[in-house]
């Protein structure tokens, strides 16, 4: 059954690597539109595999994955690529900026692959993350926090329904972590659905719900009453 206010619905998601390694074992999970989910768990628990599958970067071995009501497990490789660029914004722990493109060009790159590059819009996106004065800086001329904010501006430039982040503050100091998390909180208030993998309980505490993975299973779900109340 497709529920209209669900951004993500995962049913019986299983992923094998080879014949023996089971990264995800019949995982089922639903995420409401505008909800912020923090995924936690030890290394090798299946968090990143889960994120890769819902971001259309990987395919499951079994199960259904409905993003905005569409079962992405039935899409071809080309359809997955199209779906990813139109629906998903990705934020990486390692930032993954193109080293020879400056900040605004890195943002424009996502526009270019989506539809058409618009420099003015890309500048605005950088201004929204507090980098209006750093648009022409190369990644090597930016601090880690600034690079992550460029990565965020890039992820948000095409207004994706789903913002997926894999340890977005894993490489940042406390000051930059606060800056980046403030941006996530602003986006949540704007109604973005956020799914974030993190090891940091403090950051997970900002989410509406914490989902714990272990050995490819969802072992616990904790609702954050305070965060949900703030959002409400």
């Amino acid at each position: 059954m497709i529920t209209a206010d669900l951004a993500l619905e995962v049913k019986g998601l299983t992923k094998f690597y080879g014949e023996r390694v089971c990264a995800l074992d019949h995982v089922s999970l639903s995420v409401r539109r505008g909800e912020w989910i923090a995924i936690m768990g030890p290394s090798g628990s299946g968090k990143t595999t889960f994120l890769n599958i819902i971001s259309c970067l990987d395919r499951p071995s079994q199960g259904e994955v409905l993003v905005n009501g569409k079962d992405i497990t039935r899409l071809t490789r080309e359809e997955l690529t199209r779906f990813r660029r139109e629906t998903v914004g990705l934020v990486f722990q390692q930032f993954h900026l193109i080293p020879y493109l400056n900040a605004v060009e890195n943002v424009m790159l996502a526009q270019y692959f989506h539809s058409m590059a618009d420099e003015a819009e890309a500048r605005q996106a950088l201004e929204r993350v507090g980098l209006g004065g750093r648009v022409h800086h190369l990644p090597s001329q930016l601090s880690g926090g600034e690079q992550q904010r460029v990565c965020l501006a890039r992820a948000l430039i095409n207004s994706p329904g789903l913002l997926l982040a894999d340890e977005p503050t894993g490489n940042l100091d406390k000051a930059n972590e606060d800056l980046v998390m403030r941006i996530f909180q602003e986006r949540r208030r704007e109604g973005y659905t956020i799914i974030m993998v993190t090891h940091d309980p403090e950051i997970a505490g900002m989410a509406d719900r914490i989902v714990r993975f272990d050995h490819g299973h969802v072992v616990a779900e904790t609702h954050n009453q305070v965060a949900e109340a703030t959002r409400a």
Binding site: T81, R82, R85, E86, L90, H96, A110, F113
Partner: peptide
């Protein structure tokens, strides 16, 4: 390789 992987992750088709 990482650059190409990133382009694909951002939605670049093989053709692009």
């Amino acid at each position: 390789t990482t650059e190409i992987g990133l382009m694909k992750a951002l939605g670049a088709s093989d053709l692009r």
